[in-house]
Design a protein around this nucleic acid. Structure first.
Lengths: 181, 181
DNA sequence: GTTTGTGTTTAGAATATTTCGAACATACTG
DNA sequence: CAGTATGTTCGAAATATTCTAAACACAAAC
């Protein structure tokens, strides 16, 4: 609306590019990428219907998908004085978004791995019929995986808090066992 | 085969846990997680058919999915003396896998964003009809996004090479404009 | 060279996800 | 309060993905 027809052309390139990028991100969908692309190049907040219109999608679909964008802090819902409609604008604090993803996606995933290791070990130790050799093998493997996941988890946490992270702190030189300090 | 029935029970917990973890990873599928889970707790390499059998899937499906695991270096194909079949075993160098993912997934994705910014800018500058104000707005936004993506990209590269990465090197304090050097 | 064992490709079936339009709920307008 | 504008929810349709079984290709064994 506020932008000229030419920008709209360039906008189409950007919108589709963001769609492609988001689609392969594993975090957000193609449509969410396109929505973000549209908003990011528009200086004015845009209403739901205008977004639906511009991207040729149903209002309900935009409604659903934009919620995810707001969740990840990639888009803000703002109120526009004259209008009763919800309006949306792109956020520009990508750093924040990245932190959010690291917290809620990566770390959550790592904890899931850790939890699985723990649960497996508990289950394995209940039943005592397995040969010692097998038991030890499994426990050693579970320990190795848990240690890796815990290390990365700690690394991300440190990073999130503004600390530098160095690779060798995270991977405990696999193969050879090493003391903690 | 080489593992007792009890380990198999615990194994089921682990297999399903890995399936769940991988499913939400955005990189690999649930089935791939289950395959990895199975192999990771087995000291012996396992044949295609045995995997298919254990996970109750068709051979072809396993064949397809295991290729992805090998691609990401999460699983190795090994040859077993007595048998003509391909056998597979889990890799244990998670660090390597992580690097692989960072390179081939994250960085590739960031470059995609950068490329889109560049392409958009080129398209925008061809058409000169837009008002200066709009043009500058768009260009400033494209520059900001590109800078962020380039920063993260450089950070990951450094990290991959064993260097420490600190957050403040990456995010150029958004809001206020800043000179390059 | 034929047969047998093995992994891969392929076409279609099964399943899951995305999308739409209608129905609904809610809040503003007069 | 009636009426209208707006966002959300819901069930069905469209689309995409995953999975299977059969056909295929290739190599080893006989």
């Amino acid at each position: 609306m506020a932008e000229g027809k030419t920008i709209k052309r360039a906008g189409a390139v950007f919108v589709e590019g963001m769609g492609a990028a988001f689609a392969t991100s594993g975090v957000l969908s193609q449509l969410q990428g396109r929505i973000f692309g549209l908003l990011y190049l528009d200086p004015e907040p845009v209403s739901l219907d205008d977004i639906a219109d511009a991207l040729d999608q149903s209002k309900s679909n935009i409604s659903i998908n934009i919620r995810g964008l707001v969740d990840w802090h990639l888009v803000r819902r703002v109120s526009v004085p004259g209008s009763r409609r919800d309006h949306y604008e792109a956020a520009t604090d990508f750093w924040r978004v990245m932190q959010e993803i690291m917290e809620r996606r990566f770390r959550w995933n790592l904890r899931q791995v850790i939890a699985t290791c723990d649960e497996t070990e508990r289950t394995a130790s209940e039943k005592t019929s397995a040969r010692d050799k097998d038991r030890r093998f499994v426990e050693q493997r579970l320990a190795a995986l848990r240690q890796f996941a815990a290390g990365v988890d700690a690394g991300i946490e440190a990073f999130s808090q503004g600390n530098a992270v160095s690779p060798d702190l995270m991977h405990g030189t696999p193969g050879k066992k090493r003391r903690k300090s």
